[in-house]
Design a protein around this nucleic acid. Structure first.
Lengths: 250, 250
DNA sequence: GCTGAGCAGGTTGTCTGACAAGCAGACGAC
DNA sequence: GTCGTCTGCTTGTCAGACAACCTGCTCAGC
């Protein structure tokens, strides 16, 4: 799910549809181990009877669970819990918005991938790749000068670096992460964020990454990317504790 | 989708169900840009008529596209292409098995995450974490000695390291990747793989990672993880070219 | 001319009933 | 004991209907 700043107080428990509720119920039963991999689900009409809904609703719920890789169906035999439920696709926060406490962990995942991406981009970038990155960098600068929204330009810069790795999977994953982080980038471009010159700080970090990629220096690129991720995290208030020694022993 | 070694020659074009076909058709139209984000899909009965299927099939197809984040529906208004189609979840190879040519790229993604995971594990592991990793390592050794299948034990070793980061998202992603790579681990444990002493080579690399984590040495852990990933790739025939200078200029 | 209420048509959500396709265990013939 | 067949059950698909809801249009009122 997308990271949403407003917690939206009233929709804590949102019974948005019968199929939705049934999906949650069944998924919970699978993840809780109540329905082990390989186990057969009750028949559709039985599920409908137990939950008080029609077979159409049951079928829709099972269709979604199938799409997420939680169950598999065999005509005539029944519906079965998949061998590796939920591992067909990867989601950040399977349901509901991401909690602020999780952001630090997400930043670590993002850092792992972005740093490696910067390193590979420095090794493999072509002249055209570099030009594309330079253009994206200029777009961010323009947004800073014009006072317009730079969230899109920022995302394009990171995508351009990913493209320079010539690795489609890496690109897709960077895009996936970037999308979920897009809302966290927004505070930097608000009035208060500008006054604190946060976009300028980010842009300095961007330029450092760009310079390292330009001179094909993987180590410097990785270091610059690490610095940028750390800077981003601290700018939005996710304290990037580095090796705090507290509460370490088990 | 899971990586499957046998190409399964006959199921190249598998019309496994009407809803399946409709899902592919619509998703292709969305990814091809034919249906732009925000655009409204034809009504369900219209889609049914155009593709020659009933509304039930259309609803099942749309339910799956909803689950994957490609479309959103609003009762009374219609179904709309999502703002960021396909970015709600991340999949390796959205349909069909992974092609051998992609494996090198996937190894790069996996390396990025596993190396960072090893580094964090070395920084944060508790005594209990280390003990769990040691146990997993012993399981792999036992599989080597007994001549039994070590794929599961191998996976458990990597999961134990991920657990030592105390980062739930990292753990889930490692598990996700590990699942999709589980089939690539299998050749090492076959008769020919054993004769080539591939499990022994992998286990030496495992021990190096373990030692670095044990002495809380993040740099060595990262280096050992890099070596292991490179070793795995080369053992299954994915040549881990390091900076081949050929065809570099644009 | 402009505004706002109300209506009408269309769309998704849900229900019901039915039949086809396919699977699995039981049963009986040999 | 083994092998076919048969029967019941389950999923896949179809058809029709109504409820809940949204959107644009009409038209009275100002």
């Amino acid at each position: 799910m997308k990271i949403e700043p407003p917690p939206a107080a009233e929709e804590v428990a949102r019974p948005r549809g019968l199929a939705d509720q049934l999906v949650r119920a069944l998924r919970g039963r699978i993840e809780g181990g109540e329905l082990a991999p390989g186990a057969r689900l009750p028949a559709e009409h039985a599920l409908g009877e137990r939950f008080g809904v029609s077979r159409a609703v049951v079928r829709e719920a099972i269709a979604r669970l199938k799409a997420d890789g939680y169950v598999e169906t065999r005509q005539g035999a029944g519906a079965f819990v998949a061998g590796a439920p939920g591992l067909a696709s990867f989601r950040l926060a399977p349901d509901g918005p991401i909690e602020p406490g999780e952001l630090a962990q997400l930043f670590e995942l993002r850092a792992a991938v972005e740093v490696a991406t910067a390193r590979l981009a420095a090794e493999r970038r072509t002249r055209a790749d570099l030009e594309a990155i330079r253009r994206a960098l200029r777009e961010v600068s323009r947004a800073i000068e014009d006072g317009t929204d730079g969230v899109a330009a920022d995302g394009a810069f990171h995508r351009a670096i990913a493209a320079a790795t010539h690795n489609g999977h890496l690109q897709r994953f960077i895009e996936f992460l970037g999308y979920h982080f897009s809302e966290t980038r927004r505070p930097a471009w608000t009035e208060t964020g500008r006054r604190a010159r946060r976009p300028h700080a980010a842009q300095r970090e961007h330029e450092r990454i760009f310079a390292a990629i330009a001179r094909r220096d993987p180590v410097a690129a990785a270091r610059a990317a690490t610095g940028h991720l750390r800077g981003s995290a601290s700018r939005i208030g996710v304290l990037g504790k580095r090796r705090s020694r507290a509460k370490r022993r088990a």
